[in-house]
């Protein structure tokens, strides 16, 4: 159980990227009436930003 929780928190930035950043990006674009580039839907675009950014934060231990 403890190991599972540790893993969960280790990967939390990635989960955060998918769970929060992606829909936040999509809904922010919709709020300002901006279309996602390359013909993507807003949520796919949000996932394209949120997931890699979260992975980067897991890898580097920093968001920036």
């Amino acid at each position: 159980m403890e190991a599972a929780v540790k893993q969960l928190f280790r990967w939390m930035p990635f989960i955060f990227g998918i769970g929060f950043i992606a829909p936040l990006v999509a809904q922010s674009l919709a709020y300002w009436d901006i279309e996602a580039p390359f013909g993507l839907s807003r949520i796919y675009f949000g996932l394209l930003i949120g997931a890699p950014w979260g992975l980067y934060a897991v890898w580097r231990g920093r968001w920036i």
Partner: peptide
């Protein structure tokens, strides 16, 4: 601490995927 952090994440994710990401933020 663990419970509160998980609740925080759960609320953010639920709100965000229900269309209230900006409100949660």
């Amino acid at each position: 601490t663990m419970v509160l952090q998980l609740v925080f994440m759960a609320v953010l994710f639920t709100m965000a995927w229900s269309g209230y990401a900006i409100e949660a933020a």
